[in-house]
């Protein structure tokens, strides 16, 4: 451990360190702050409870820079993106049962939350969207589907996510969107980059 609270810095090879902060909102806040303040790292990668700083030539300087950060700086203020969804997913009924409501109730709750893209992983442009209340967490499918179509909107644990491309997947699918989630030719290739605020609306 190189740092003091609130950030525990774990060395990760010669040119990287993992900052442990304990939850996705704080990880996003730290990553956003680090990018904005020009921390010298090739990669700043927020995740569920950590931020990876990779490609760092001066790890003690990184540790010193992180000491000037405090979690009270945490305010997601990224762009707000509206994602239109056709709610016809195969798992609507099972989610409705888990939430103790009907399909209309699932759509109402899903569209009433403002989500924040906490971090990307799994595939380019696949964002883990935080915002659902903890009591609405649903388990992954027992066995993943061999192919989930691109644009599928799903839930797993406390997260909501949208598949940017077709892939195998175990998330519970509520519907689908035509929103262009990933386009490497765009200046911002990922529609839902970390920090982006997201609202789902009925298509």
């Amino acid at each position: 451990m190189l740092g003091l609270m609130p950030v525990q810095l774990r060395p990760f090879g010669a040119t990287a360190a993992l900052a442990e902060v304990g939850d996705p909102a704080t990880a996003l806040a730290l990553a956003t702050w680090a990018r904005a303040s020009g921390v010298a790292a090739l990669e700043v990668v927020p995740a569920a409870e950590t931020v990876l700083f990779d490609g760092v030539t001066d790890l003690p300087a990184l540790a010193a820079a992180l000491r000037s950060w405090s979690p009270s700086d945490a305010r997601p203020d990224g762009d707000l993106v509206e994602v239109p969804v056709t709610y016809d997913g195969p798992d609507l009924a099972s989610v409705a049962q888990a939430w103790g409501t009907d399909v209309a109730g699932v759509v109402r709750r899903h569209t009433s939350v403002e989500y924040v893209a906490s971090f990307c992983g799994f595939a380019p442009g696949f964002a883990y969207l935080a915002g659902l209340p903890a009591e609405l967490a649903v388990p992954r499918l027992d066995s993943p589907r061999p192919r989930v179509p691109a644009g599928s909107v799903g839930l797993a644990g406390p997260w909501c996510g949208v598949y940017p491309s077709a892939s195998p997947g175990g998330w519970r699918l509520l519907g689908r969107t035509d929103a262009p989630l990933w386009d490497p030719d765009r200046e911002r290739p990922a529609l839902l980059a970390p920090g982006t605020r997201v609202r789902f609306v009925r298509a």
Partner: peptide, 9 residues
């Protein structure tokens, strides 16, 4: 293409 890990690349 380093620098894009935060987008899942």
């Amino acid at each position: 293409r380093p620098g894009l890990a935060h987008l899942g690349v």
